[in-house]
Simulated assay, not measured.
Amino acid sequence: MLAVFHSRRKLKGKQSLGFSVDRSKEKKPMRTRYSLSFPAAKGVWAHFPAIGVTAILVALTWIVLGEAQLGKAQAQQQKAPARIFNTAKQKLREGKMLVGATVFSPDPNIYCATANTGYDYLWIEMQHSPLTFEDVAKMIWACRGASAMPFIRVPDATEGDIQKATDIGAVGIIVPTVDTVEKAQAAVKWSKYPPEGRRSQGNGQYGALWGSDYRQIANENMVVVVMIETPIGVENAEKIASVPGIDVIFAASTDLGNFSGHRQGEKEYEALVTRIHDVTLQHGIRLGGPQAWKGRPGFTFFQGPGETQLIEAGAKVNLSAPARPAVAPVEGDKPPGGH
């Protein structure tokens, strides 16, 4: 609120003309007071006729209003949402279903062919494959601009594994066998820059892939997926789901059976899945599982088949397609991998 005042009260031998701004209703209450002082002997009115005083007050009013508008503009700029380049993260925020194919091969052509078929992300498998970070860096770079976002299942929630994965351009980190709250915290800590995490800033191809403002927007774009795969992890599911920064909790269908000794459909196995399901959704986290579980309620993040299965399925479709007149493709018109 703006209050304009003039006073004949003497302040150290002077009279004053001025105004104040009352910000008592703002987050940081304060009153700012501005004034013009004149020698008391002549008085303010001797210096300025009434019309001049009015003009000064109007001018001062505009100054304060301008200051207020500038403050609002700065506040809005500070609250502006970060640029989201990770389309998978955006879909998660919108509550959409995500499906990703799994990649084991180091061949960039196979990677690109898979990345441009319509999947939301690619599950790059580094826990159960001989892939190296050098292999994966070349794959991601060769297919920059693909519609499927690169996610990496790292071997473990260590600084070295996650740092390398993020530096080469992964925008999703999948951490296996999360049994404890400490491991869940490590997944977030090494995936994100300060103040949300402890990721170090160093060299990498992430900037060339995602933009020069990457450091400022990386945390908003990173997807952290933790996998619960054992009865111990299920027992600690509540604590794991309470860790800030987790986007998806993934119920690992194969290892839940491997570590529990029960098979899908058995009540003991299904009780484990139900526990993960309930805790995850209660905490507002997205629930993941194999693509075969698309019919299960609450699951919206899925791991699809590997590239060899996709090649096999595609070959069967190709061989079973009905014969009809068509224009034969010209060799060399389209590079391998379709990019």
Results as ranks from 00 to 15, higher is better:
residue 2 L to E: 06
residue 3 A to Y: 15
residue 16 S to E: 12
residue 26 E to R: 08
residue 26 E to S: 13
residue 27 K to G: 10
residue 30 M to G: 14
residue 31 R to F: 15
residue 39 P to L: 11
residue 40 A to G: 06
residue 40 A to L: 09
residue 48 F to P: 09
residue 54 T to G: 15
residue 63 I to W: 09
residue 66 G to A: 05
residue 69 Q to H: 11
residue 75 A to K: 09
residue 75 A to T: 04
residue 82 A to Q: 11
residue 85 F to A: 15
residue 86 N to W: 04
residue 92 L to H: 01
residue 94 E to H: 09
residue 96 K to Y: 08
residue 98 L to S: 01
residue 110 I to M: 10
residue 120 D to I: 09
residue 123 W to Y: 07
residue 123 W to C: 12
residue 128 H to S: 08
residue 128 H to N: 04
residue 131 L to T: 05
residue 131 L to I: 02
residue 133 F to T: 09
residue 141 W to P: 10
residue 147 S to C: 11
residue 149 M to Y: 03
residue 151 F to R: 01
residue 156 D to T: 08
residue 157 A to F: 01
residue 160 G to C: 13
residue 161 D to L: 14
residue 172 G to W: 03
residue 177 T to N: 13
residue 180 T to N: 06
residue 180 T to W: 03
residue 181 V to M: 11
residue 183 K to H: 13
residue 190 W to N: 08
residue 200 S to A: 12
residue 201 Q to V: 15
residue 202 G to R: 09
residue 206 Y to S: 11
residue 214 Y to P: 10
residue 224 V to K: 00
residue 225 V to L: 06
residue 227 M to Y: 02
residue 229 E to P: 05
residue 233 G to Q: 00
residue 236 N to E: 04
residue 238 E to D: 10
residue 238 E to H: 03
residue 239 K to L: 12
residue 239 K to F: 08
residue 240 I to M: 02
residue 248 V to M: 02
residue 252 A to Y: 06
residue 253 S to E: 13
residue 259 F to H: 13
residue 273 V to H: 00
residue 276 I to H: 00
residue 277 H to A: 07
residue 284 G to D: 01
residue 286 R to K: 08
residue 287 L to Q: 01
residue 296 R to D: 10
residue 297 P to Y: 04
residue 298 G to T: 02
residue 301 F to A: 05
residue 306 G to M: 02
residue 307 E to A: 06
residue 311 I to H: 08
residue 325 P to Y: 12
residue 326 A to F: 07
residue 327 V to K: 04
residue 330 V to G: 10
residue 331 E to D: 13
residue 339 H to Q: 07
